[in-house]
């Protein structure tokens, strides 16, 4: 740990951004390309088929909508956590961060109920290409949610020890940026899979 500290994480003299912030934005840029590819594949396959099931005939729109609310709310709570962090309110930070985590788990819970229903109806990724797209896209999104849960819980548990670390707020901000991105992906997945 000590040896890594030679690289000081100071706001760059040249770019005006901290390493963490620049780094997370670069990472998000690559994530944009990743999900763009998945959406391209989806569109190519969908537009290349002579007919495609309407999402709402097959999928559970109310659950999808509730999940959207859950994820949007968690985006708000994480930004409130960041605001509390900036205002040096540790208790407030922890509350909002825990709330974010709880909402993330709610999201995954609803998701697993949805998947379970599908499996019980014998709808698997191999059933047809619609379910292939549905399971792979929502599955990859769920993996990103799990990644966010890990990141956010690390921050939650690090809060006591590193509260006075000047870099801590930057990390919360980075985690928040990532979490909002996960939210944005879902915002596109909802209409793409469920509604159209």
């Amino acid at each position: 740990m000590s040896s890594s500290a030679v690289a000081v994480n100071y706001p760059g003299e040249h770019s005006g951004l901290t390493n963490a912030k620049l780094g997370i934005w670069l990472f998000l840029a690559s994530e944009v390309m990743l999900f763009a590819t998945l959406f391209t594949s989806y569109l190519v396959i969908r537009l290349g088929s002579s007919s495609w099931p309407r999402g709402w005939e097959v999928l559970n729109v109310p659950l999808g909508t509730i999940n959207t609310f859950v994820l949007i709310t968690s985006s708000v709570t994480i930004i409130l956590a960041y605001a509390k962090c900036m205002a040096r309110d540790k208790a407030g930070f922890k509350t909002y961060m825990a709330l974010t985590l709880a909402l993330a788990f709610v999201f995954l819970g609803i998701k697993s109920v949805e998947w379970g229903t599908k499996f019980r109806a014998h709808h698997f990724p191999s059933t047809n290409i619609f379910f292939g797209v549905y399971f792979v896209l929502t599955g990859l999104h769920a993996l990103h949610v799990i990644g966010g849960i890990i990141l956010n819980s690390v921050l939650l548990f690090m809060a006591d020890k590193h509260w006075d670390d000047p870099l801590f707020a930057g990390r919360v901000e980075a985690a928040g940026l990532y979490w909002h991105f996960v939210d944005i992906v879902w915002i596109f997945l909802l209409p793409a899979l469920y509604l159209l």
């Binding site: 994530e31 390309m33 590819t37 191999s126 047809n128 290409i129 797209v133 792979v136």
Partner: peptide, 25 residues
């Protein structure tokens, strides 16, 4: 690397799904 590699990563995941989950991307 940053902007060109993710599409292959996504494409590989889809191919992996074709092989493991028997989808037909």
């Amino acid at each position: 690397l940053l902007l060109a590699f993710p599409p292959l990563e996504a494409a590989s995941i889809l191919q992996l799904a074709d092989r493991v989950l028997h989808t037909s991307f």
